[in-house]
């Protein structure tokens, strides 16, 4: 709702909005305080003392490093696959009004529209039917499937803004389809793809609901964290890892925001 004149919001609305925003952010900030607490048995507040010791302890934990590595490899591979699949789908869908294009959009969105537990159990059932042993690839397959939609949404929005006459103008000026893609289409969709890729990375890096069903005995960082939540072994290490996870996912999200600022909003779980 754009208004021509500057209006003052009613005080009650302002308070409710600010309180709502605070509700959305304060709990995460709390994690940062806990990463420095000296208390190691309970979640005592306020922290009895502050220390940097847990960063060192975490640094020397091979299980944390292994989980982090698995998560990074998974997220990077799943993102790469999602970029290829999502871009191809978006290009095809925006290219023509072919038969079944609504179906394709639905198919892409379905893995994220249905609750994650369904995607998870479905993949698990399929792996069990096909006698496929759990591996890095079973995790990646699951992640890529629900990451496609993130890239797709960003790419489709940009393709829609990329006026069809630009492609026609390029061909009109003598560029064949590959030259047109290289010189006109790619530069215009690159930031959207990058933004989509970053969001897909954040989504994959952080995913646990589907991963549990497709991971077998392996631990991604979120699975490691979940284990610690259910059966805490060393709470301060969990605190530090949680803080690192917040920071690691923050970067791609901010990156995606700045890449698409002023053109279109990064799209992902919604739209």
């Amino acid at each position: 709702m754009r208004s021509s004149r500057i209006e003052k919001a009613p005080l009650g609305l302002k308070l409710a909005a600010v309180a709502g925003l605070a509700f959305m952010h304060l709990p995460i900030l709390l994690i940062f305080a806990y990463a420095f607490t000296t208390e190691e048995r309970s979640y005592q507040w306020p922290p009895p003392g502050l220390t940097l010791r847990w960063f060192e302890v975490t640094w020397n934990r091979p299980d944390v490093w292994a989980a982090l590595e698995l998560s990074l490899v998974t997220a990077a591979t799943a993102t790469a696959i999602a970029i290829v699949l999502g871009t191809l789908t978006a290009a095809a869908v925006s290219r023509t009004r072919f038969f079944g294009r609504e179906t394709i959009s639905l198919l892409v969105i379905l893995p994220i529209a249905l609750p994650g537990v369904i995607t998870g159990i479905a993949l698990r059932a399929a792996f069990s039917v096909g006698d496929i042993p759990f591996s890095l690839w079973t995790i990646i397959v699951g992640h890529a499937t629900f990451c496609v939609v993130v890239v797709y949404n960003n790419a489709v929005a940009r393709f829609r803004r990329l006026s069809g006459s630009l492609v026609e103008a390029s061909m009109d000026l003598g560029a064949n389809q590959f030259q047109t893609f290289r010189y006109i289409v790619l530069p215009n969709i690159a930031t959207a793809l990058l933004a989509g890729g970053m969001l897909a990375f954040a989504l994959s890096f952080d995913e646990v609901i589907v991963t549990i069903f497709t991971a077998g005995q392996q631990q991604t960082l979120p699975i490691w964290m979940l284990e610690e939540l259910v059966r805490p072994r060393q709470r301060p290490v969990t605190n530090v890892v949680a803080m690192v996870v917040v920071l690691v996912t923050l970067l791609p999200i901010l990156g995606a925001y700045y890449l698409t600022r002023g053109t279109d909003q990064p799209r992902g779980r919604l739209k």
Partner: peptide, 12 residues
């Protein structure tokens, strides 16, 4: 908050 880690939110 939409994109930040689900598990961290639960943990918080």
């Amino acid at each position: 908050p939409l994109w930040s880690s689900y598990l961290v939110k639960v943990y918080a």
